[in-house]
């Protein structure tokens, strides 16, 4: 019985992230539109877009290979699994020990690896420009992220997100310099990873400034739907990650009563809304960078991560 309940909660989390991620994307778009004094599309628009794309036929470039057709599903699956392993409303789920934070980052890395390959598959210049810029960004964002993970793991004594969340809600952790550095670094990495302004613009239609959109230029129909879905899931994942690590309040403990789960879910929805609103506010208040300014931006995140880790190596209390 306990096992079935565990599986139900785990399955609930998988379904929850899947159901919520387009809503989050729609919410961010809505807030952005409001900040720009536009009315904006309905928050449910991403669901409609996905359904419309799913029903359309796929137009495949002549020399697209099997890799091009498999990639969208692989990316979707890897991102979904990663998103479902980040604690949202409860910690200590049945399969939460399957992958720790390092493995979750690496899963996202797998998704990016295949997306970059798919960008080069058709053999147009746009795919190539997108892929080469994406891997350039990734070569800085991934080490920065890993150093931030080191910082968190050293504070919490664990790379398991559930344990990190428990540790972070303890009073003895308190305010620390290294955690502050890690938070800033993590936000910078999250912006880059999700192709948001100022690193990339998800709504751009000018080919030369595109990174992520250039890679997926040849995708259409259900394939594009999978990729868009994966992008929404990734945004949700990063906001959940920041919420779980830096604001673990209200999150339900393992084997708690249904009421605790309900409180956890409500708290989680609140955190998502806050995170989405802050993202929209940040995006409307800043301009996009030139591509070759991005290394400076991410280099700063890398240095913050390194500094945070170094402080912890030198003193356990900083």
């Amino acid at each position: 019985m306990a096992l079935i309940l565990d599986l139900l909660v785990q399955g609930g989390q998988m379904a929850l992230v899947l159901a919520l991620s387009p809503l989050l994307t729609g919410f961010v778009r809505k807030v952005k539109a409001r900040l720009l004094r536009r009315r904006g599309p309905s928050m449910l628009q991403p669901y409609r877009d996905l359904l419309r794309l799913l029903r359309k036929e796929v137009v495949l470039a002549d020399n697209a290979s099997w890799l091009f057709r498999v990639t969208p599903y692989l990316i979707f699956a890897a991102t979904w699994v990663a998103a479902a392993l980040v604690p949202t409303f409860a910690i200590g789920l049945k399969f939460s020990w399957t992958a720790d934070l390092i493995a979750i980052i690496a899963l996202l890395g797998s998704a990016r690896f295949f997306l970059a390959l798919a960008g080069m598959d058709v053999g147009t210049s746009f795919g190539g420009i997108g892929s080469s810029r994406e891997v350039m960004i990734a070569t800085l964002a991934e080490p920065a992220m890993l150093l931030i993970v080191f910082t968190l793991a050293l504070v919490a004594g664990s790379t398991q997100l559930s344990m990190v969340a428990v540790m972070m809600s303890q009073p003895e952790v308190g305010l620390r310099v290294s955690l502050g550095l890690a938070l800033i670094g993590l936000i910078m990495v999250a912006i880059a990873e999700n192709a948001r302004i100022p690193v990339d613009n998800p709504t751009t239609h000018l080919e030369l400034t595109m990174v992520h959109e250039a890679m997926v230029l040849e995708y259409s129909g259900r394939h594009l739907a999978m990729i868009e879905f994966a992008a929404s899931l990734k945004l949700l994942l990063y906001i959940s990650l920041i919420a779980c690590v830096f604001a673990p309040w209200g999150i339900a403990a393992p084997d708690s009563a249904p009421l605790a789960y309900a409180i956890g879910t409500a708290a989680y929805l609140g955190k998502l809304a806050l995170g989405g609103a802050l993202l929209a506010l940040f995006e409307t208040s800043i301009a996009k960078m030139r591509v070759f300014r991005v290394p400076d931006f991410l280099g700063a995140a890398l240095m913050l991560g390194l500094l945070g880790t170094l402080l912890l190596f030198v003193s356990r209390s900083l």
Partner: peptide, 12 residues
């Protein structure tokens, strides 16, 4: 959803 597929030239 859909399983239709059509081949066409890449966007140049």
């Amino acid at each position: 959803a859909s399983r239709a597929l059509r081949r066409g030239p890449a966007w140049g």
